[in-house]
Amino acid sequence: MQHKILLTINGEQYENFVSSERTLLDFLRDDLGITGSKKGCDEGECGACTVLVDGIAVDSCLMLAVEADGCELLTVEGLNKSELDPLQKAFIEHGAIQCGYCTPGMLLSAKALLLEKNDPTDDEIKEAIAGNLCRCTGYLSIIDAIRSVAKGGG
């Protein structure tokens, strides 16, 4: 069954047809070629597919594309419009990226946190990225990077 959906992704309007069972993640990656959001586990464990829907972090692998009809999405591609987002710069400066597969999701979970609180505690930072698994960095450099942006005013 096909559905017409209308949504905004990174500030641009999209109008598309999707089948009922298409996940938001597959829609972004395979239908639109917006491949920044990664497919790790496809069952909500790893957070590599994290996107913001109306400003709230969700796992796009457990959401249907048709559910995003009328919504405003932010993916990692939307973070650097003219220049890198402060979070992206901080990740680079702190060496918070190794293989990079978790990075888009990490950035968006961090973004959601900073949209809500501009001076989070370390515990709040850890909790905000609890749903994003990283098997390379040991998390410390990621936490440092997020804290540095928070202190700088987000």
Binding site: G47, I56, A57, L62, G131
Partner: peptide, 9 residues
């Protein structure tokens, strides 16, 4: 329980 993303859904 779960993660922030999952609790948001």
């Amino acid at each position: 329980g779960a993660s922030p993303q999952l609790r948001n859904m």
